[in-house]
C-alpha cells in the first residue's frame, strides 16, 4: 500500500471551527452593540463603552480572555475561509497565499496577546 502524508489541516480546521462557532454565537451581537447600539445611543445606558469601563473590562481576567478569543479566533476563522475561497475561485496561490493568510492571523493573535497583557491586570 502506498504511504500517505498526514495532513496538518486539523490545526487550522480546529481554529477555523472554534472561530466559526464563536462568531456565530457572538458576532451579530457584537456588531450590533459596538456598531449600532452604542454609537446611536440605543437601548444601552450612556457610556457603556467608555474608556474606563472598557479598560476595566480588558484588565479583568475573563474580559481579557473574551477579547483575546474574539479577536484571535475570528481572525483564524476568516483567513481559513479566505484561503479556501481563493482555491474555490480557481486561484491556486499556493504557499505564498497560505503564508499571507495564516501569517496575518498569527500576527494578529500575537499583537492582541501583547496588547492585552500590556494593559495590565
Amino acid at each position: 500500500m502506498k504511504t500517505r502524508k498526514r495532513s496538518n489541516a486539523p490545526i487550522f480546521w480546529g481554529l477555523f471551527g472554534a472561530g466559526g462557532m464563536l462568531s456565530a454565537l457572538f458576532g451579530p451581537a457584537l456588531v450590533f452593540i459596538t456598531g449600532l447600539a452604542v454609537p446611536l445611543g440605543l437601548l444601552l445606558p450612556q457610556g457603556t463603552m467608555s474608556y474606563p469601563k472598557m479598560l476595566a473590562f480588558a484588565q479583568n481576567f475573563i474580559g481579557k480572555g473574551f477579547i483575546f478569543a474574539v479577536i484571535a479566533l475570528f481572525m483564524w476563522h476568516a483567513v481559513h475561509r479566505i484561503y479556501h475561497s481563493l482555491h474555490e475561485f480557481g486561484i491556486h496561490a499556493g504557499m505564498g497565499a497560505k503564508l499571507l493568510c495564516y501569517g496575518s492571523a498569527f500576527v494578529g493573535t500575537v499583537i492582541s496577546a501583547v496588547v492585552l497583557l500590556g494593559v495590565g491586570f
Binding site: R4, S7, A9
Partner: peptide
C-alpha cells in the same frame, strides 16, 4: 485512518 487523515483525505472537503 491513514487515508482519512492524509492529504488526499477528508480535509479537502469545504
Amino acid at each position: 485512518m491513514e487515508l482519512v487523515a492524509s492529504e488526499e483525505g477528508v480535509f479537502n472537503c469545504s
